[in-house]
Write a protein that binds this DNA or RNA. Structure first.
Lengths: 333, 333
DNA sequence: ATGAAAGCGCTAACAA
DNA sequence: TTGTTAGCGCTTTCAT
């Protein structure tokens, strides 16, 4: 059996309260007694029991992280960002995957409460009223991460996806393109994808151009490859914007399968800037999303909420960036 | 404030002990009183406090997961495997990144103890005596995941990396190759990479062939691209095996940069089978590692350890597989 | 089948 | 500056 605070107190010849004080630096302790305590701790190799501490103090120094799926490339980077900042503030993270299923999400919020997490970082494709209700019921501080709350009820960290898509359109127009297509998964499947598609459509229209949406049957490589390939053979655009990196690789390969030169004949632009954009030939130009920062900033945000530091805004918009690369090189302009 | 077990007891007109009994199904309770308790729980929307439960029972139903870096693609899949099985057995996971730094690893094992995790899943590039000592000191059940203990002191789940590398060599020889190179990061940086390199060297020698190791300055794309490119222009092999998928993409691109046809002039073989092997042209043949299974099997193993189920062996070797694809198509044979 | 009561290892008033 | 004493919300003997 391991040593308790009581053992340390006895060993040091003081009361457990004093030990607790030096442990938490919660009151001034005479230098001399402090030393005795520290020696006793070292001698017994004492380590405080975080569970007991959590019960007594009602703070567990853990935060719950609910993601659709860590194994999605960018989610892992995001989680890494969370964990780095969490460690910096002495928090631990309890990680759970929801697979984007509403039932599982609300269940998880409940069990996170049971675990007495101090706060919650929540990611989902589309925030629903059920989520909000469950947050309320659990009475937990929550920060949304790469997830929008259109009504701004819950603090969130995200980029402006509509603006980002519009920027992509403007960038390609400046490069001399007019027929610009946009590949995405099914409509309505994800608020994020919808925002990007809307940004694209609006930007096209505002330039007096006709939008060319290409809708893949599913939000992944294979389906997109087929969709883009068949679309391209019917009606060839000068450029393609993909709703995410995986779809962009599909678009790129579709072009290559049809022996279309990228970027000379068709430019391809990706969205997110995960590692895979660096693993294609030609290298993909992308709208870069700060994955790591989503996590890091959201976690920092949460520490502020928990430490009653003042916060300026409840909706943090992170900057996006166009990472220019080979797949949109030269032409016109 | 939220309801406690005491509130439920009062509401149901029974003692808290009885409530605890129906909660944990730890003793027979009369059907009638059971119903009263269940109604009270529902009425008060009661949820047990896991921290209090953990303190009283000395079981927290949480397990610690220490990985070098979740944001490495295959680590995320592995963590997903862990979490799925953990959920199945009602465990939660506390995730931490060590960046492979020994000091941080041992610190983390310590804090995991403080958190009173029921067990530990540990991943590292090379198991050291310091790790073993810290495990012992923490008195925690540990399962190594994608990590070998050559002396078999700690339970582990892995593939046979030497054998896998040898299989790759044999496969390529059967395809008609004799000059086969092997790209990896610096020697001695990772036990895993070393095992694969050794498997390669031994297999080559056993066929009376000269090994052609190519050592990249770092275990990542850029360096490997340069190393392979310069090597290929000096001394062209018929095939290249890469120590992991990222290096394989580098090797592939090195060939393409030098206008060498893959697979006709040079075959390329990858190792691990992460998503990126599906995103290249030509598609890469890989030695497939069961990433998800590493996590899932290790977690299941741990539940057995914790639930005193009997276990057959302490060293689980998972099967690897050759996923044949375009980058090693045709030739000879 | 149920209840009473003693902890689990700590924090946090309140005293001294 | 230090010690005493209640809890925190639950599990778990031990009685009944």
């Amino acid at each position: 059996m391991s040593a308790t605070i009581y053992d340390v107190a006895r060993e040091a010849g003081v009361s457990m309260a004093t030990v607790s004080r030096v442990l938490n630096d919660t009151a001034v302790v005479k230098e001399e007694t402090k030393k005795k305590v520290i020696d006793a701790i070292a001698k017994l190799a004492y380590r405080p029991n975080a569970v007991a501490r959590g019960l007594a103090s009602k703070k567990t120094k853990t935060i719950g992280v609910i993601v659709p799926d860590v194994s999605a490339t960018f989610m892992a980077e995001l989680v890494r960002g969370i964990e780095d900042i969490a460690r910096m503030y002495q928090y631990h993270i309890i990680l759970s995957n929801s697979d984007g299923m509403l039932q599982r999400e609300t269940d998880l919020i409940g069990t996170m409460w049971e675990m007495q997490v101090d706060g919650l970082l929540f990611m989902t494709a589309e925030l629903r009223q059920e989520h909000i209700d469950t947050f309320e019921q659990a009475q937990l501080p929550v920060v949304l991460c790469r997830t929008d709350d259109p009504q701004r009820r819950i603090p969130s960290v995200n980029i402006d996806n509509r603006l980002a898509a519009a920027d992509a359109v403007n960038y390609l127009i400046a490069k001399g393109n007019r027929r610009i297509a946009f590949v995405s998964g099914p409509i309505g499947a994800s608020a994020l994808a919808d925002a990007r598609r809307r940004g694209y459509v609006d930007a096209m229209r505002s330039h007096g151009l006709e939008p060319h949406p290409i809708v893949a049957p599913k939000d992944e490589y294979e389906g997109a490859l087929v969709s883009v390939r068949s679309q391209l053979s019917v009606d060839r655009p000068e450029a393609v914007i993909a709703c995410n990196d995986e779809l962009a690789v599909a678009a790129l390969h579709a072009c290559q399968d049809l022996r279309l030169q990228v970027p000379d004949e068709v430019m391809v632009m990706a969205f997110d800037n995960t590692k895979i954009t660096h693993l294609t030939r030609p290298l993909l130009t992308t709208i870069s999303q700060p994955m790591y920062d989503f996590g890091a900033v959201a976690m920092r945000f949460l520490t502020k909420l928990l430490g009653d530091e003042s916060i300026a805004t409840y909706t943090v918009i992170l900057p996006h960036l166009i990472e220019e690369n080979e797949s949109t090189g030269k032409r016109f302009n």
